[in-house]
Amino acid sequence: MYNFDFARPDTLQDAQAALRADDAQALGGGQTLIPTLKQRLAAPAILVSLTAIPELKGICLADDGRLCIGGATTHATVAREAAAHYPALAQLAGNIGDPAVRNRGTIGGSLANNDPSACYPAAVLASGATVITDRQEVAADDYFQGMFATALGEGEIITEVRFPVPQAANYQKFVQPASRFALVGVFVARFAHGVRVAVTGASEGGVFRWHKAEAALGDDFRAEALGDLAVEADGMIGDLHGTPEYRAHLVRVLTGRAVTAAA
């Protein structure tokens, strides 16, 4: 990889200052960024690690019942500490990558990257979570803006993600056999006021909500309620590992399974 300077601030303020430098790049757990740097696909002048900032780490339950997860919290920590509060989210975190990746990878890093096959975006969108940065609070529906595109500005840091905890939820991941990212992943969350269904891995537009399924499930939270609903193959990803038709089909299958598992 190209060389760069390395900063490891221990306060958010110092991190913000460091990120104002030219070609500065924030570094979460690095599980995606480091392989990218190895391929010389990025050439930051300085990497600013967010792993030493205590205020960005940890999990707590807010007074309003929302689960707050610091941006630099690892997947392993979420898998462990969110289990009592939001089991479906903990289960999702516990199946990202592999154990070593989960010990480094962070929720903020995953959301900032917004890989179209990543798991976390499905949970954030289906939960209707709020992404909190050092500059703004963004509702999930506004945060994801297509493959690798988000509402984040240059040098903006995800400090926290706040998850409303649903009454019932489940995440179904069908793995791409090589990378073990989601070939398709579906997160279903049932709240008192309705059901949200978010799909990752499938669409060329990145994570999306399947509104028709939400409507059907809002009336009747059973897999059977999906009837013959289907997502259009048009716009789904087609690659070595699955055609658009296959992905569209999996969306339907996994949604049903998630509902059954959640109910």
Partner: peptide, 28 residues
């Protein structure tokens, strides 16, 4: 080169970590 094979796995502060995917500068 893609953090998948695990041949480089070590423990950092008692946790499994892929040593090909962590900078030495993180380890003060």
């Amino acid at each position: 080169d893609t953090s998948q094979c695990g041949a480089c796995l070590v423990h950092v502060n008692g946790q499994a970590v892929k040593s090909c995917s962590i900078f030495a500068a993180e380890l003060e």
